[in-house]
Write a protein that binds this DNA or RNA. Structure first.
Length: 882
RNA sequence: GGGGUUAUAGCUCAGUUGGUUAGAGCGCUUCGUUGACAUCGAAGAGGUCUGCGGUUCGAGUCCGCCUAACCCCACCA
């Protein structure tokens, strides 16, 4: 039928072709009005100017597997694609490009800078999409969305205004995390804390109006001394009680600081006295409010010291620290510097040390939103896979704090608030040109929203919300969200809150969490380490199917995996194995009529065996897919296809396939070969879409694409343990012969006679029927089957499989001593097992309490071992007489 | 300070409601160009499942504790 297929699978030759075919035939497209229960996934939107990395490759492979699986099962399947504008990340990129020209965003001005970013998006916005296509992602590209497109922007504004109307968005002067490099406020989770060795500076503050009296405070950030407005001690601290109500003199500056008492102070830490800097420390900020302390801002947004700091004004914060410490030393006020490890916050995006400082920002009040989001998970309405992430999620939700959503950057959704000179701030769905209160001119808030604000709306904004759309109706809530554990708080949690409030329902039923792809040493792949592996490189070299298979096997949900080229190669080999098994089939389908179903009576044991194994595989693979155990499903397919179908069935079928004189048996073999392989390819399709499509298209088929093939169904009637058992005996007999031949180095070309002494009468016909296999697969010259009571052959090697003693008369090749040793070793193993089983069976509690089928199994084992043992012992005894 | 993950063959990992002589890939040893595949085939070597205790007739699997590594969360200056 097909003889011109290359012996090595070449992904490059088929991938582009079939992807185009799928797209041209709109096979990824979903219609809300079409039949079928909905199954939907929204893609975690990658950064629009980003590039596909290994994490994306894994994340999207998992999604594509689920989508393709459900599509084949007949669901009305939507995979919604799109990109994220990724505020700070994208802005940094464009700023870096600008820096190449020696410019900053301020040189361009806001409008021109934003225009520049849109140009970037136009230039690179397709790249990530094209990379996802190379991976094989079956997204409905006709629906592609962008977090800053018109629809999503409308959703953002609607949500902002609604939350504001509900009193859940407010503006406030509060202490927030500030990145001096990005020049913007950050939310708490955008700050990464790293425990680092630092210093604890002990500084003397003289007591006002005293003679040489002082109080010593300890601080890790001496430059903030300039913003101190009090010194606090614990009210019960006997060392300092007499000082409460008096004043200390701020070193260098000379300002008078009240000494106050507050429970917050831990007498055991440092000196038990704390300097209070309300504008630059979250705790001090709170304490400042309690004691009505003034806030003195000593640092500018760019990290230099403010005009408030006198001679230090304009210095970088780090320079100031050194200068100030020197000044304290000079004045004899620096008592000591202790080594002190403490957590320092860094900007997630640029790594700069973050400063807590007071500024005016917009916040979302989280408690009321978190409550339903928490309940949806604790009630089981939304399930995390694996389950352990439930706890991480709920713990965060229970301790949630308000979310700072305003960013002082330019790329993003502008906050829909307008300021008027009359003092009114108006939040509006429509752009304002005049103040609704006084009619005066208004100016829109300069800030934009945190990127995650719009991402949080993704499951419903992409479906057309706030409009009522058929998509929203059909596909929301989505079926599953697939993402890494690193963005559970950033994204999953926000989608839960927003979805429940604005989508009127949970955003997804399952959250399928996967781990990170690390390098071969277990390190995170990162640009700075230069240890990243480009998925495109893997696809170029080995093909997308290979990459996908490698990414989905060998690990379990939620756990990290390491990238090894050896594993890529092993997946590649599997693809090649599939290719060649298919080649074999295609080369042997001559005269095959798929419509003709052979008489089941003509099926051989091998046929019934592989069909039984196949149907078991269907059931197990489907079960594992439904439970998100994709790696296990893939492993089962690998083992079935390679170890059973290729290693055995193809070999067992060859004789019939090659014998063109006997049409009927040949047709049966063709039928089974085709049926099992074609359907196994269907099972494999979600994992390896390209190669399975390429082969499927060569086969006789109905329908346009394997993508649209019906997912295989298990037929329990085809599962036959007796046939499996019988076939196992035949295979074990073959293996036993091969083993003995290898043991004494029989040349591969040299055939030898085989004598089988069958002790289990039921096995006699099985072996008699399958003698041909021993000839072809075990190099048997002749096979003689003798009864259990017959005289045992002499001068032969011996092996025992269940119910069959296998004798290999190898005159001249047998070294009696070696053979005895080999059998003795076998005996020792059997004795050990026999002792174990006998021990179990003689244990009264076991016999009384274990389930009957377990006991029966153990008894059967015991009988088998006994029989084998007896046979081998007899053999050893015989050898010893020689 | 809380919480979590991991510990199984030389390496990387599976082992899913507790019950087979604990598996795979890579690596290693020996052999193999017979018409699917050397990106292959055949035969092998290699593990007291981190340690201790508990539950159970039975534990790699469930429960404690120990050790080690990693991760997340947390406003002790």
């Amino acid at each position: 039928m097909e003889n011109n297929i290359p012996t090595v699978y070449d992904p490059q030759a088929v991938e582009d072709k079939w992807y185009r075919f799928w797209e041209e035939n709109r096979l990824f497209h979903a219609e809300a009005a079409a039949a079928g229960d909905p199954y939907s996934i929204v893609i975690p939107p990658p950064n629009v100017t980003g590039q596909l990395h290994m994490g994306h490759a894994m994340d999207n492979t998992l999604q594509d597997i689920l989508i393709r699986f459900r599509r084949m099962q007949g669901y009305n399947t939507l995979w919604m694609p799109g990109c994220d504008h990724a505020g700070i990340a994208t802005q940094i990129k464009v700023e870096e490009a600008l820096a190449q020209e020696g410019k900053s965003r301020y040189d361009l001005g806001r409008d021109e800078f934003i225009e520049r970013i849109w140009e970037w998006k136009a230039q690179y916005g397709d790249r990530i999409v094209n990379q996802l296509k190379r991976l094989g992602a079956s997204c409905d590209w006709e629906r592609e969305r962008f977090t800053m497109d018109e629809g999503c922007s409308k959703a953002v504004r609607e949500v902002f205004v609604s939350l504001h109307e509900a009193g859940l968005i407010y503006q406030g002067h509060r202490i927030t995390n500030w990145c001096v490099r990005c020049n913007t406020a950050l939310s708490d989770i955008e700050v990464e804390h790293e425990e680092k060795p630092g210093h604890l500076y002990h500084v003397r503050y003289p007591i006002a109006g005293s003679d040489g009296e002082y109080i010593t405070v300890a601080t890790t950030r001496p430059e903030t001394i300039l913003g101190d407005t009090a010194v606090a001690v614990h009210p019960e601290d006997a060392r300092y009680r007499h000082l409460i109500g008096r004043f200390a003199l701020l070193p260098v500056v000379g300002r008078q600081l009240p000494i106050i008492a507050d429970d917050y102070v831990d007498p055991a830490f440092g000196t038990g006295a704390v300097k209070i800097t309300p504008a630059h420390d979250p705790n001090d900020f709170e304490m400042g409010l309690r004691h009505q302390l003034p806030q003195i801002i000593v640092m500018n947004p760019d990290g230099t010291m403010s005009a408030e700091t006198g001679k230090y004004a304009g210095m970088d914060r780090n320079v100031c620290r050194k200068a100030l410490v020197q000044d304290l030393k000079d004045q004899g006020l620096l008592v000591k510097i202790d080594e002190h490890a403490h957590a320092v916050g860094h900007c997630q995006r640029c790594g700069t040390v973050v400063e807590p400082l007071v500024s005016k920002q917009w916040f979302v009040k989280m408690q009321p939103l978190a409550e339903p989001a928490l309940k949806a998970v604790t009630s089981g309405q939304v399930e995390f896979v694996p389950d352990r992430f439930t706890k991480i999620y709920t713990n965060w939700m229970e301790n949630i704090r308000d979310w700072c959503i305003s960013r002082q950057i330019w790329w993003g959704h502008r906050i829909p608030a307008w300021y008027c000179q009359c003092g009114e701030v108006t939040v509006s769905r429509e752009d304002l040109t005049a103040c609704p209160h006084c009619g005066g001119p208004v100016e829109q808030d300069a800030d934009v929203l945190d990127t995650w604000f719009s991402s949080g709306l993704w499951p419903f904004s992409t479906m057309g919300w706030p409009e009522k759309t058929p998509e929203l109706d059909k596909y929301y809530p989505t079926s599953v969200l697939v993402t890494g554990y690193d963005i559970i708080f950033f994204w999953v949690a926000r989608m839960m809150m927003m979805g429940l409030r604005f989508g009127q329902d949970i955003p997804f039923r399952h959250v399928f969490i996967h781990g990170l792809v690390r390098d071969s040493e277990g390190r995170k792949m990162s640009k700075s380490l230069g240890n990243g592996i480009d998925p495109l490189e893997v696809i170029d070299k080995y093909g997308a199917d290979t990459l996908r298979f490698m990414l989905v096997t060998g690990n379990t949900p939620g756990n990290d995996m390491r990238f090894y080229w050896e594993r890529v190669e092993s997946s590649r080999n599997f693809a090649n194995k599939i290719w060649n098994a298919s080649r074999f089939m295609l080369m042997n389908l001559e005269g095959f009529d798929p419509a003709h179903r052979p008489d089941p009576a003509l099926y051989t044991l091998a046929d019934r065996w592989i069909l039984s194994r196949y149907h078991r595989t269907v059931a197990e693979v489907t079960r594992n897919m439904e439970r998100f155990e994709l790696g296990e499903a893939a492993r089962l397919l690998y083992e079935f296809l390679w170890n059973e179908f290729c290693d055995w069935y193809i070999e067992l079928a060859k004789a019939r396939l090659y014998d063109k004189e006997n049409a009927a048996p040949r047709a049966v073999a063709q039928h089974v070969l085709h049926q099992v392989l074609a359907h196994t390819l269907e099972l494999l399709h979600p994992f390896m879409p390209f190669i399975t499509e390429a082969i499927w298209q060569h086969l006789p088929h109905d329908g346009i694409s394997i993508m649209k093939a019906r997912w295989p169904q298990e037929n329990a009637e085809c599962i036959c343990p007796a046939d499996e058992q019988a076939m196992t005996t035949v295979m074990e007999t073959i293996k036993a012969i091969r083993n003995m031949r290898a043991e004494v180095n029989v040349p591969p070309g040299k055939k030898s006679p085989v004598i089988l002494q069958v002790t289990d009468a039921a096995l006699r016909p099985v072996l008699t029927d399958n003698i041909a296999y021993l000839v072809t697969l075990a190099a048997a010259e002749s096979v003689e089957i003798i009864g259990g009571d017959a005289v045992k052959p002499e001068n032969a090697m011996t092996a025992v499989v269940s119910g069959v003693e296998v004798y290999l008369p190898l005159k001249g090749l047998i070294d009696v001593e070696k053979e005895t040793a080999r059998l003795q070793k076998e005996l020792a193993g059997l004795e050990k097992e026999l002792a174990r089983v006998a021990g179990k069976l003689s244990n009264e509690s076991f016999v009384a309490k274990a389930p009957p089928e377990v006991i029966a199994k153990e008894k059967a084992k015991e009988a088998e071992y006994r029989e084998k043992h007896a046979a081998i012992r007899e053999r050893v005894a015989y050898l010893e007489t020689l």
